Simulated assay, not measured.
Amino acid sequence: MAEPSYKIESYPNADKPKMLFSAPYEFFPENLKNHLTENYDVTFAFNAPRDKVMELLPGTKIWFTGTCPPYFMDKEMIDASASLKIMATPSTGTNHLDVQHAESKKIEVISIKESPVIEQIYASSEFSFSLLLAMVNKVPFAVEQAKQGVWREKEHEFRSIELNGKTIGLIGYGRIGRKMARFSESFGMKILAYDPFKNIETSYVNEVDNLDDLLAQSDIVSLHLHLNDETKGMFDKTYFDKMKDGAYFLNTARGEIVDEQAMLDALQSGKLKAAAVDVISEEHEKDKLNHPVIQYAREHNNLLVTPHIAGCTVDSESKAAKDVIRQIEEYLAKN
């Protein structure tokens, strides 16, 4: 597979902090890009490969990272700049960088995970529900068949279900889980939610204290968790076995939360009717084509995969970038 195209744009500003900006920026409003070029010695390098980024890092004080780069920001990359003081990512997740090593070097790691701005971002929840609809209604399969001239003669393969009256189980009730509940309620669904860290008071949501109960009752199970040491690999074969026969599974959180082989086995056996994921494990690896999840999706119609684009809107990325810049400048003002 060919390397993605990239260009390097540098705006020298010798008396300003040196910033490497490897996140996308071409959709930024002009005033936001101008703010960066006027207040930082900034180099834009979105889509630059790892070796090029390594060349650009020395002397960098602030690294504004992409959220889904084709490399892991490891010890070697972090150590490439002795001046590095801030690593900032316009995302809630930080599994694309070695947080532990950064923090061991007293590098400030900035994200939007605890920022109020996340309540103003709707892209991930809107996309998650869209993906749910596409999965249940077999939209990608139907579109591809129509392109080949296939019409209602295959309607037995196109036939799906209504969401009205079905039960959705939300695992995690943060900002995306809450919005998913609101969308689900508007479709007339019964909503179960499990989150031991939240007191769920939404009138139309039934809070469950036992995850096993949610799995046994839900027609659709949807993951909305942060990836951490406790959730890594959490959703394994035992959880899939406890789900209803013929249930649907949605993951737009992080691929590493799920035992992907167990998911594929459940799809192959028919335990799961279908699954849809916007995330896979080891996303920083270049060889996505031979990833087991991608391979299965190429050969079967009951797994829908999208390339981690739930938050990929002009609106959400601009809001996140502005907030991260705000956090960077607050940190610089205090240190």
Rank of each mutant, 00 (worst) to 15 (best):
Q148L: 12
T60G: 04
A142F: 06
K75Y: 07
L131Q: 12
L250H: 01
L36V: 12
H300T: 10
G59C: 10
T92P: 03
K237P: 06
P116G: 11
S218K: 01
A146F: 11
A14F: 07
G174P: 06
H300C: 09
A2L: 15
P70E: 11
K288A: 12
A134R: 03
M54R: 06
A333F: 07
E330H: 12
C312D: 13
F72T: 02
K16M: 10
R178Q: 15
Y71M: 12
A82R: 12
K179V: 05
A321C: 08
H284Y: 15
D241C: 07
K85A: 10
V305K: 05
A274W: 00
L227N: 05
A266F: 01
F235N: 04
A253T: 10
R159I: 13
I78L: 13
M19K: 02
E126G: 01
H96A: 09
T94G: 02
S184T: 07
V117S: 04
G174R: 06
Y296D: 09
L131S: 04
F46Y: 14
E317A: 02
S203G: 02
N228D: 15
Y6D: 10
E285Q: 11
Y6K: 05
P70K: 07
L272H: 04
R254F: 06
E282I: 08
K190A: 03
E260N: 11
I220M: 06
A23C: 09
E283C: 07
T306M: 09
E230G: 04
L225E: 03
G59A: 08
I220C: 05
L223M: 01
Q145N: 14
F28R: 05
V99N: 07
I328S: 09
V42N: 03
S222L: 09
V221S: 05
L132F: 05
N251R: 02
A23H: 06
L304K: 00
K61Y: 06
K154L: 14
L163Q: 03
I118Q: 11
N290H: 15
K242M: 11
G246E: 03
E162N: 13
M180G: 00
I328H: 08
R152Y: 15
L214S: 03
K334D: 13
P90E: 00
D241W: 01
D213K: 08
L97W: 00
E299K: 15
Y25L: 02
N228L: 07
A216K: 15
P17K: 04
K33H: 01
E119A: 11
Q295L: 15
E330D: 14
G246R: 06
P29H: 00
D41H: 13
M54Q: 10
F127S: 13
K271F: 11
G172S: 06
W63C: 05
M180V: 02
Y194K: 00
I118M: 11
S316P: 10
M180F: 00
T89L: 08
V136N: 08
S318N: 14
N137E: 08
S81I: 00
H35T: 09
L20S: 04
G177E: 09
V305G: 07
I280E: 04
A333W: 05
Y71V: 09
K242T: 05
Y40I: 03
L332W: 06
